[in-house]
Measured scan of single mutants.
Amino acid sequence: GNAVQEIMIPASKAGLVIGKGGETIKQLQERAGVKMVMIQDGPQNTGADKPLRITGDPYKVQQAKEMVLELIRD
């Protein structure tokens, strides 16, 4: 079955996860074999953390989460 996890991405790092024209998030999805969606909560909310929703095989979702956390670590 499918697992769904959401991680909060600091607004300052959201661009890093998505990448230029969505390149990075696309590569992450391909590498991890999961679906990732950045939940954009309207323009008034630009400074707030953005939830990144990861959907897929539970094991792969976990892997994907680690990859993203690695990416946004300072």
Rank of each mutant, 00 (worst) to 15 (best):
Gly1Met: 15
Gly1Asn: 08
Gly1Glu: 09
Gly1Ser: 05
Gly1Thr: 14
Asn2Met: 15
Asn2His: 03
Asn2Gly: 15
Asn2Ser: 15
Asn2Glu: 15
Asn2Pro: 11
Ala3Gly: 09
Ala3Tyr: 15
Ala3Glu: 15
Ala3Ile: 15
Val4Tyr: 12
Gln5Val: 15
Gln5Met: 15
Gln5Gly: 10
Gln5Ala: 13
Glu6Cys: 03
Glu6Asp: 06
Glu6Met: 08
Glu6Gly: 03
Glu6Pro: 00
Ile7Val: 10
Ile7Cys: 02
Met8Gln: 11
Met8Lys: 09
Met8Trp: 04
Met8Ile: 12
Met8Leu: 08
Ile9Asn: 01
Ile9Ala: 00
Ile9Met: 03
Ile9Arg: 00
Ile9Pro: 00
Pro10Arg: 02
Pro10Asn: 03
Pro10Leu: 00
Ala11Gln: 08
Ala11Tyr: 07
Ala11Asp: 12
Ala11Val: 08
Ala11Asn: 14
Ser12Cys: 05
Lys13Thr: 04
Lys13Gln: 10
Lys13His: 11
Lys13Pro: 01
Lys13Trp: 03
Lys13Phe: 04
Ala14Pro: 01
Ala14Leu: 15
Ala14Gly: 04
Ala14Val: 12
Ala14Arg: 13
Ala14Ser: 10
Ala14His: 15
Gly15Cys: 15
Gly15Thr: 07
Gly15Arg: 10
Gly15Leu: 11
Gly15Asn: 14
Gly15Asp: 11
Leu16Lys: 13
Leu16Ile: 10
Leu16Gln: 07
Leu16Arg: 07
Val17Thr: 02
Val17Tyr: 02
Val17Ala: 02
Val17Pro: 01
Val17Glu: 02
Val17Asn: 01
Ile18Trp: 08
Ile18Phe: 14
Gly19His: 02
Gly19Ala: 03
Gly19Arg: 02
Gly19Met: 02
Lys20Ser: 10
Lys20Ala: 14
Lys20Cys: 05
Lys20Asn: 12
Gly21Gln: 11
Gly21Thr: 09
Gly21Glu: 09
Gly21Pro: 02
Gly21His: 12
Gly21Leu: 06
Gly21Ala: 12
Gly22Glu: 09
Gly22Phe: 05
Gly22Ser: 06
Gly22Thr: 03
Glu23Arg: 15
Thr24Cys: 09
Thr24Gly: 13
Thr24Pro: 04
Ile25Gln: 03
Ile25Pro: 01
Ile25Glu: 01
Ile25Arg: 03
Ile25Leu: 13
Ile25Tyr: 03
Ile25Thr: 03
Ile25Phe: 04
Lys26Ala: 09
Lys26Phe: 05
Lys26Tyr: 10
Lys26Cys: 04
Lys26Glu: 07
Gln27His: 13
Gln27Ile: 12
Gln27Phe: 10
Gln27Val: 07
Gln27Thr: 07
Gln27Lys: 14
Gln27Arg: 12
Leu28Lys: 01
Leu28Tyr: 03
Leu28Thr: 03
Leu28Pro: 01
Leu28Ser: 01
Leu28Val: 05
Leu28Asp: 01
Leu28Ala: 02
Gln29Ile: 03
Gln29Val: 03
Gln29Leu: 02
Gln29Trp: 03
Glu30Asn: 07
Glu30Lys: 12
Glu30Pro: 00
Glu30Tyr: 06
Arg31His: 14
Arg31Tyr: 04
Arg31Lys: 14
Arg31Ile: 06
Arg31Thr: 10
Ala32Lys: 04
Ala32Met: 12
Ala32Trp: 09
Ala32Arg: 02
Ala32Phe: 15
Gly33Lys: 07
Gly33Asn: 09
Gly33Gln: 09
Gly33Glu: 07
Val34Ser: 01
Val34Ile: 02
Val34Trp: 00
Val34Phe: 00
Val34Gly: 01
Val34Thr: 03
Val34Cys: 07
Lys35His: 13
Lys35Cys: 06
Lys35Ile: 05
Met36Gln: 01
Met36Asn: 01
Met36Ala: 04
Val37Arg: 12
Val37Ala: 09
Val37Leu: 11
Val37Met: 08
Val37Ile: 10
Met38Trp: 11
Met38Tyr: 07
Met38Ala: 04
Met38Thr: 04
Met38Asp: 02
Ile39Met: 14
Ile39Gln: 11
Ile39Val: 13
Ile39Pro: 09
Gln40Met: 07
Gln40Cys: 11
Gln40Pro: 09
Gln40Asn: 07
Gln40Thr: 09
Gln40Ala: 09
Gln40Glu: 08
Asp41Ile: 06
Asp41Trp: 04
Asp41Ser: 10
Asp41His: 10
Gly42Asn: 09
Gly42His: 07
Gly42Trp: 03
Gly42Gln: 11
Pro43His: 13
Pro43Asn: 05
Pro43Cys: 10
Pro43Gln: 09
Gln44Cys: 07
Gln44Phe: 07
Gln44Asn: 14
Gln44Val: 08
Gln44Gly: 13
Asn45Lys: 13
Asn45Ile: 11
Asn45Gly: 13
Asn45His: 12
Asn45Trp: 06
Asn45Asp: 14
Thr46Glu: 11
Thr46Arg: 10
Thr46Gln: 12
Thr46Asp: 09
Thr46Phe: 07
Thr46Ser: 10
Thr46Pro: 12
Gly47Arg: 07
Gly47Lys: 15
Gly47Trp: 05
Gly47Val: 09
Gly47Asn: 10
Gly47Met: 10
Gly47Asp: 10
Ala48Asp: 15
Ala48Gly: 13
Ala48Asn: 07
Ala48His: 10
Ala48Cys: 15
Ala48Pro: 10
Ala48Trp: 05
Ala48Ile: 13
Asp49Gln: 07
Asp49Glu: 12
Asp49Thr: 10
Asp49Val: 08
Lys50Ala: 11
Lys50Asp: 02
Lys50Phe: 05
Lys50Gly: 04
Lys50Pro: 04
Lys50Asn: 08
Pro51Glu: 12
Pro51Trp: 08
Pro51Met: 14
Leu52Ala: 01
Leu52Val: 05
Leu52Phe: 05
Leu52Gly: 00
Leu52Met: 10
Arg53Ser: 05
Arg53Lys: 11
Arg53Thr: 13
Ile54Gln: 00
Ile54Met: 08
Thr55Trp: 06
Thr55Tyr: 05
Thr55Ala: 06
Thr55Lys: 04
Thr55Gly: 03
Thr55Asn: 05
Thr55Arg: 05
Gly56Trp: 00
Gly56Lys: 00
Gly56His: 00
Gly56Glu: 00
Asp57Lys: 10
Asp57Val: 07
Asp57Glu: 14
Asp57Met: 05
Asp57Trp: 02
Asp57Ile: 10
Pro58Val: 11
Pro58Phe: 07
Pro58Ser: 09
Pro58Ala: 12
Tyr59Lys: 15
Tyr59Cys: 13
Tyr59Asp: 15
Tyr59Thr: 15
Lys60Ser: 10
Lys60Cys: 13
Lys60His: 12
Lys60Trp: 03
Lys60Tyr: 03
Val61Pro: 01
Val61Thr: 05
Val61Ala: 04
Val61Phe: 01
Val61Glu: 01
Val61Asn: 01
Val61Met: 03
Gln62Glu: 14
Gln62His: 08
Gln62Ser: 09
Gln62Tyr: 10
Gln62Cys: 10
Gln62Leu: 08
Gln63Ile: 11
Gln63Thr: 10
Ala64Asn: 01
Ala64Ser: 04
Ala64Cys: 06
Ala64Thr: 03
Ala64Phe: 01
Ala64Asp: 01
Ala64Tyr: 00
Lys65His: 09
Lys65Pro: 01
Lys65Phe: 03
Lys65Leu: 04
Glu66Arg: 07
Glu66Ile: 04
Glu66Asn: 10
Glu66Val: 08
Glu66His: 04
Glu66Met: 08
Glu66Asp: 13
Met67Trp: 05
Met67Ala: 11
Met67Gln: 08
Met67Tyr: 07
Met67Cys: 04
Val68Asp: 03
Val68Gln: 02
Val68Phe: 01
Val68Gly: 02
Val68Ser: 02
Val68Glu: 02
Leu69Cys: 10
Leu69Pro: 03
Leu69Arg: 14
Leu69Asn: 14
Leu69Phe: 08
Leu69Asp: 14
Leu69Ala: 12
Glu70Lys: 13
Glu70Ser: 06
Glu70Trp: 03
Glu70Asn: 05
Leu71Gly: 03
Leu71Pro: 02
Leu71Gln: 07
Leu71Phe: 08
Ile72Val: 14
Ile72Ser: 03
Ile72Asn: 02
Ile72His: 02
Arg73Ser: 15
Arg73Lys: 14
Arg73Glu: 15
Asp74Ile: 05
Asp74Trp: 03
Asp74Pro: 12
Asp74Lys: 04
